[in-house]
Computed example of a mutant assay.
Amino acid sequence: MEEYLNSRVTNLELSGIRKFFNMVAEYDDVVSLTIGQPDFPTPLHIKEAAKQAIDENFTVYTHNAGFLELRQAAAQYLYKKYNVSYEAETEIIVTTGASQAIDISLRTLLSEGDEVILPGPVYPGYEPIVKLCGATPVLADITKSSFKMNAEIISSYITEKTKCIILPYPSNPTGVTLSKDELREIAELVKGKGIFILADEIYSELVFDQKHTSIAEFLKEQTILINGLSKSHSMTGWRIGFLYAPKDIARHILKVHQYNVSCASSISQKAAYAAVTAGFDDAAAMREEYKKRREFVYNRLVEMKLEVVKPDGAFYFFIKLPEAYSSSLDFALELLKTQRVALVPGDAFSIMGEGYVRLSYAYSMETLKKALDRLQLFLKK
């Protein structure tokens, strides 16, 4: 019966990250730097809030968009952090993680034949959804611009079919982000055109050397802003995201959300309320630790004479392969087999990621040192 399934689904590939992760599981004694997940526990006060919600039987459906007090708190959180204002009643949707927010946004925006511009290399969670909508992903080559998709690059890819531009900054897999001036220039480029910005800002609290700026500050009327708590509060498994959009857009996205999941988990919503109120600055300590790790890893990679752009945020390095290698998968497999170190092949992040590997430093310093020692030995051999 497989032949009768939706061909858009059957033609999709599993995530290259997941494929390689499954390969890693076949080996013993592997030091893996593959997973983009904080290695810190969820803060205690957030877990206690979830327990209290269970004890108080807050185990029913909430409003489709999330219970109002959480949306009000999410509005205040965003305004205080990034100076962007949204109405809690009509412009905020609590989603089942940022991934679901991306899905319902693109399904609301896109029609058959539309084009979506996104950076290449890029996290593999966008292209499949674009294709499922019958639209075409257009990868903008950012390998020669320090992995920044700026206004000049974007303008060269805009056509009459362009419906959306995806701005995932800080970036997975590169860790690079955009400055306030760069975002302003992008806003000026598309302002007044029938083009939406989908701004995935899930790593906004993990920016090291500058304050994060949201493009919604300059172009709210055309922007769907996506954020959440997975990275900032180490809540990946709680599955809570926040979608912010002008009410005339949000009301249509809410319809897709309603038929998709009804509402986000009520228990997780209560935990999220604690995160954005009492846990307003929970990310600060984690951010400082990630910054120390970034400096350590960067210095080691430079010592190894590996070509790398120093990341501004998140917890990734996107490392150019040594000249002796042309295949990121071959490099990653040889490193895995000979030294038991796992890095993600760059081609998992689109065809434009070929020639690179991604290293996650969301691991302890002890783990990072062990992995980098083995990588250095591999390169010497």
Rank of each mutant, 00 (worst) to 15 (best):
M235R: 06
A274E: 05
E188Q: 12
A135F: 10
S262E: 11
H257A: 12
V297A: 09
A245P: 02
S230M: 13
K180R: 12
Q258I: 04
A275W: 05
G125R: 01
A88W: 01
A274K: 04
L254E: 04
R107V: 03
I224L: 13
F349R: 00
K144M: 05
A362M: 11
Y169N: 02
I153G: 05
V207R: 10
P168D: 08
I104L: 08
R184L: 12
P43S: 04
S204N: 10
A245S: 02
E26M: 13
D28C: 04
D312Y: 15
A53M: 02
H63T: 09
K231C: 12
Q376N: 14
V9H: 10
N150Q: 00
Q72T: 07
S179N: 11
S326P: 04
Q376C: 10
I93Y: 03
Y27N: 09
L329N: 12
I224P: 07
D248R: 14
V31Q: 11
K270R: 12
L183P: 00
P168G: 10
S234T: 07
K255I: 02
L106W: 06
G355D: 09
Q37H: 14
S171I: 03
V341Q: 08
F21P: 06
H233N: 11
G194S: 15
R340L: 06
T338G: 13
A187D: 01
R8S: 14
E115N: 05
N150W: 00
Y203F: 15
S268W: 06
A65R: 13
P170S: 07
Y61T: 05
Y169H: 02
T96A: 12
P173A: 14
I186R: 02
Q72M: 11
G16P: 03
G313A: 02
E112C: 06
L335W: 11
P121L: 01
Y363S: 11
L372Y: 09
T213L: 07
R374G: 02
Q269V: 02
I165N: 03
A74V: 00
A285R: 15
T62Q: 08
A49S: 13
F280W: 10
F315K: 08
E323H: 09
E221L: 08
L379V: 07
G125P: 04
Y4W: 11
I202Y: 15
Y273S: 03
A278L: 13
V341A: 10
D29P: 01
V302R: 12
A75E: 05
I319L: 02
P121D: 04
C133Q: 06
L78N: 07
S232M: 03
R239T: 05
T367P: 05
V256W: 11
A135G: 07
F20W: 06
K369L: 08
G125T: 03
A49L: 02
A187V: 00
T236G: 10
Q210L: 05
S328C: 01
E112K: 14
F40P: 10
T174Y: 01
L379D: 05
R340C: 08
A284K: 15
L219D: 00
F242K: 03
S266A: 11
D141E: 07
Y61N: 13
Y4S: 11
P38G: 01
L243C: 04
K47R: 12
P128F: 03
A187Y: 01
Y259R: 11
E160F: 08
K131Y: 07
G175C: 08
K291N: 06
R293G: 04
L379R: 08
I104V: 15
E56T: 08
A275H: 05
L254G: 00
Q76I: 07
E13F: 14
Q258G: 01
P38C: 02
I54H: 05
